Simulated scan of single mutants.
Amino acid sequence: MRRFVLVLVLATLSAGCASVGGAQDWRPWRSRAEAGHIFVRRACAGCHAVGVRGLSPNPLSPPFRTLAERLPGAALKADLSAIASRGHAQMPPIYMTPGEIRAVAAYIRSVAPRSVT
């Protein structure tokens, strides 16, 4: 019985380690927006203000809370897809999987003023 429990615990841990990844790896206890927040803190916060307040470190980079208003509906995901493949203006391409794009879009909508979402 102890061996069975040990094998079960090791299998669970190895499965968890194998699935640790970016925002595409959102789990039931982590919302898509939370997964997007993890991604943008790592990949975008160097230039953009990614929270509900604050200025962007790069004055040319818009705060994320303004993007949902500037890119309503499907335009937000389309713009993120374009950024993933070819960048934008002074921004280099930031590779994102389709799941990461959905997660980042969900996060951007979550920090937008309530009148936009």
Rank of each mutant, 00 (worst) to 15 (best):
M1L: 00
R2D: 02
F4S: 00
F4H: 04
V5K: 11
V5H: 06
L6R: 14
L6W: 13
V7A: 15
V9L: 15
A11P: 06
L13C: 10
S14W: 06
A15N: 10
G16C: 13
C17A: 15
V20K: 01
V20I: 15
G22I: 00
G22P: 07
Q24N: 09
D25K: 03
P28T: 02
P28F: 06
P28M: 00
W29T: 10
S31A: 11
A33D: 04
A33I: 04
A35P: 07
G36A: 08
I38P: 02
I38N: 11
I38E: 11
F39G: 00
V40Y: 07
V40P: 03
A43R: 14
A45V: 12
G46D: 14
C47S: 13
C47T: 08
V50E: 02
V52P: 07
L55N: 09
S56G: 02
N58L: 13
S61Q: 01
P62F: 09
P63A: 06
T66S: 13
E69D: 06
L71F: 15
L71V: 02
L71N: 10
P72H: 01
G73R: 02
G73T: 12
G73Y: 02
A75W: 08
K77L: 00
S81L: 06
S81H: 14
A82F: 09
A82P: 05
I83P: 01
A84L: 10
S85W: 11
S85A: 15
R86I: 07
G87A: 13
G87L: 08
G87I: 05
A89F: 08
Q90F: 04
M91D: 04
M91S: 07
M91N: 05
M96F: 11
E100H: 11
E100G: 07
I101N: 00
A103W: 09
A105S: 14
A105F: 11
I108H: 04
R109I: 09
R109Q: 14
S110D: 13
S110H: 10
S110F: 12
S115N: 07
T117V: 03
